[in-house]
Design a protein around this nucleic acid. Structure first.
Lengths: 141, 141
DNA sequence: GCCTCAATTGACTTTTACGTAAATGCCATG
DNA sequence: CATGGCATTTACGTAAAAGTCAATTGAGGC
């Protein structure tokens, strides 16, 4: 919790690293989970001795992982998505392949969005039925 | 595959039931999966002897289950959601509880929607980087 | 009545995403 | 220096959601 800050210029500073427990609290996950993500190669915290030091980039990755999880992606799918955010490859074939895979993921996400809207619409209907029923019963909503 | 149709009026008819394999093909799942959903009480096909006959309502339920799966809901969550689509309960306390739960699910879905939009935006960026890189390399897109 | 194909059942296996326990290290504090 | 608190590693456990396989069983066609 000491200095642990870097100058970015114009007097602006930011945290240089975060402890594992800090991040477990921020993202409401266990240390086991963060270590698991490290084993899976999703994050690569640096070490001081044996202690993990998570840097802002790791923190951002964890944020992306959590988002992916909430969307129902598996670890492998999340790994793929994270790959896509990384520095684009240098070779043309690789680049075209990557664009194709990004497009696939986007199609996947668009399907999810349709599913989501439909489910939301049906929940709206369900709630309306409930409210109507309450009104029938003469309940002051 | 025979007659298997009901008159709805004005000459409009619809399938009365579907075989398990028809549905496995339509939804691209295994028979094991559909039987699993039956064991879990998500669908209740009627029987002719031991053979399952899925009715349109079962088919619609399966459609909802698949949607829920794509959104990353667990079977239990899907079960809850399906409960919500059903006939609203008769008692006031139950009704209010149901409305509360529906609202919770909707909040959940709205979070998913935010996650989804953010992820889509990042994928857009990623693709743009790739395209830029291609242009730098002088590839005719 | 027999044959064959589709369907059923039950048992066992697999994968994913961690949980949990045990043993131990590191360090600050009273 | 003992104590507490967080950290680490290794190993084994587990719940959910099916997959897989083997052994029947039924129903329709000839």
């Amino acid at each position: 919790m000491a200095g642990n800050r870097v100058e970015l210029g114009y007097g602006v500073t930011m945290r240089e690293y975060y402890s594992i427990t800090e991040l477990t609290r921020e993202f409401d996950v266990s240390t086991r989970t963060l270590r698991f993500y490290e084993d899976e190669g999703l994050v690569q915290p640096v070490r001081r001795g044996r202690t993990r030091l998570f840097r802002p980039s790791d923190r951002h990755l964890i944020r992306q992982i959590m988002r992916g999880k909430r969307l129902g992606f598996s670890i492998n799918e999340i790994r793929e998505i994270i790959q896509m955010y990384k520095e684009p490859p240098g070779e043309v074939g690789q680049l075209k392949l990557m664009i194709k895979r990004i497009e696939e993921k986007r199609e996947d996400l668009r399907q999810k969005r349709r599913d989501l809207e439909e489910t939301l619409a049906e929940l709206d209907q369900a709630e309306e039925s409930c409210v109507e029923r309450l009104v029938e019963l003469g309940v002051n909503t």
